[in-house]
Design a protein around this nucleic acid. Structure first.
Length: 268
DNA sequence: ATGGTGGTCATACCA
């Protein structure tokens, strides 16, 4: 079994626990990074994940909002939580796992959505989002000497024209405005990260990982966006075997509005 | 230009 890492904004881990367990059973990723767990740490369903083979769990949760969790079949070490924008919310968690003889640090992120109005002067949520991605510049892709890194999660930005159903119609919509898309691409490049989804799937191809709940028929309208990402240190490009966007998960019973993305590597 | 759905927690807030 090649080493694999999945990311999924679950929009309440307790409500959708059966879906997560089904996903783990069907796809057996070594690592699953969850976002929007909406679950305080003392209520996190650890036991159910232990029984599913995920004995190693790190969580950073709070009541009602946000929250990230990293589940693993392999030992997780050096858990670390970084705070952003001087707000005590739960949007980042990093851990270290071993694969293919490398120590891989995995950053699990939930970037603020940013509200509706793409103007930081009048919308404090958008200002928060811009401040957050500015502070994310401190997250560098570290590699070499038997180490590597991944940065995954719901970044709430669709950077490329082919990451949205209509580039023109979304230019003034939060998640695809130039200040966000350029900001994210700049921080990715300056941090030395490779966009592994786009390394595997060419930029000419549309990719979506999220479809709004508000569409009458999400599948027919197909107005999606690629908000969820898997970045890696450049050494991992050569180890990447494939990327899967599990679109079918959007059609499951009481689904999350995001679907899982899975990266498989030629590493043991 | 508007409202459309869904989760949390218990009423508005957030996505």
């Amino acid at each position: 079994m090649p080493f694999s890492v999945a990311t999924w904004n679950i929009n309440s881990v307790r409500l959708r626990l059966p879906l997560v367990l089904q996903f783990l059973q069907d796809h057996q990723p070594d690592i699953l990074c969850l976002q929007e767990t909406k679950c305080p740490d003392d209520l996190f369903p650890r036991e159910a994940f232990h029984e599913a083979g995920y004995a190693h769990i790190e969580i950073s949760g709070q009541k009602g909002y946000h929250g990230v969790a990293t589940l693993s079949r392999r030992p997780l070490t050096e858990p670390a939580r970084v705070g952003f924008c001087n707000i005590a919310d739960c949007r980042h968690l990093s851990t270290v796992v071993e694969a293919g003889g490398k120590r891989i640090r995995i950053h699990n992120f939930y970037v603020p959505a940013g509200g509706d109005e793409p103007d930081p002067e009048i919308n404090p949520k958008f200002a928060h989002k811009l401040g957050f991605i500015d502070e994310m510049k401190a997250m560098r892709a570290e590699f070499g000497e038997g180490s590597a890194s991944l940065l995954v999660g719901d970044l709430n930005i669709a950077p490329l024209e082919t990451d949205v159903w209509s580039h023109k119609q979304l230019l003034k919509v939060v998640s695809h405005t130039p200040v966000e898309t350029e900001g994210l691409e700049n921080l990715r490049r300056s941090g030395g990260w490779s966009d592994l989804m786009r390394h595997h799937i060419p930029p000419s191809e549309k990719i979506y990982t999220w479809w709004s709940y508000r569409a009458a028929d999400w599948r027919a309208a197909d107005r999606g966006r690629r908000l969820d990402h898997i970045w890696g240190s450049p050494d991992l490009e050569g180890d990447l075997r494939d990327i899967t966007v599990l679109k079918e998960a959007r059609g499951w019973e009481r689904p999350s509005d995001h679907v899982p993305v899975i990266a498989r590597f030629d590493l043991d």
